[in-house]
């Protein structure tokens, strides 16, 4: 499966996600600069990496969400192309309107950088098919603005539609209903604050993140 990683000024997990994608797919991802206006042809996934695009100016992900390449990403997502946003990538996806809600400053104001336990809420999406519903996994987080917010109606709706992919098993950042990862209505866009790409081999202390990429490969195709 061919993949693309979008690189914004200030992205700093673009290489991590590229290494993870290559390890699982066997194909080096195309690294696409934010100023480009088109995605490479024939890709099965676009990944928006973690980092601090544009120094988090204005709001985390706000400026990156208005970059040229994001118009192509939104158009491709609307046609069903899988899009994965991790950490800052999640913030960019909400700012671009591809996912509901917003990511605010952590409730305790601290930058949280540690391993956290997650529960898999929806194990039927293209991203989570290799997990079992209710399974507990360990994935690291590293963020300052991971406090997921949406109004009550939106939270009820996304929960009712099975669009919560992952929840924190304990309190991490003040997120509404402990939401750690959200799917769009079509199930082809996932945003999550934890970093699965930092947990793909034993040397990382575990490989719970690897199955996300393996599941994608299986679902989307080689």
């Amino acid at each position: 499966m061919k993949t693309a990683v979008i690189v914004f000024p200030g992205s700093n997990c673009d290489r991590d996600i590229a290494v993870a994608l290559e390890a699982v797919t066997g194909v080096k991802p195309a690294m696409v600069w934010h100023g480009e206006s088109e995605l490479p042809a024939g890709i099965g996934l676009v990944a928006l990496p973690g980092g601090f695009s544009y120094g988090d100016y204005l709001r985390s992900g706000a400026v990156a969400a208005r970059s040229a390449i994001m118009r192509a990403v939104v158009a491709a997502a609307d046609k069903g192309l899988p899009v994965l946003g991790i950490c800052n990538g999640f913030q960019v996806l909400t700012e671009a309107g591809l996912l509901p809600g917003a990511l605010m400053r952590n409730e305790g104001l601290d930058f949280v950088c540690r391993e956290v336990k997650l529960t898999v809420d929806n194990a039927q999406s293209a991203f989570t098919s290799r997990y079992a519903a209710g399974e507990e996994i360990v994935i690291p987080v590293a963020h300052h603005d991971g406090n997921y917010f949406a109004d009550q109606d939106t939270l009820d709706r996304i929960e009712g539609e099975g669009r919560v992919a992952f929840r924190y098993a304990g309190q991490v950042n003040g997120s509404a209903r402990d939401i750690a990862g959200v799917l769009n209505a079509g199930g082809n866009v996932l945003g999550m604050m934890p970093h699965p790409e930092r947990r793909i081999e034993a040397a990382h202390g575990g490989d719970d993140g690897r199955r996300l990429f393996e599941g994608l490969l299986e679902t989307v195709g080689a």
Binding site: L58, A62, R66, T94, E95, G101, A102, M104, F149
Partner: peptide
């Protein structure tokens, strides 16, 4: 609406 404020919050 398009940039300066995030009208979700």
């Amino acid at each position: 609406k398009k940039l300066l404020a995030n009208t979700v919050i």
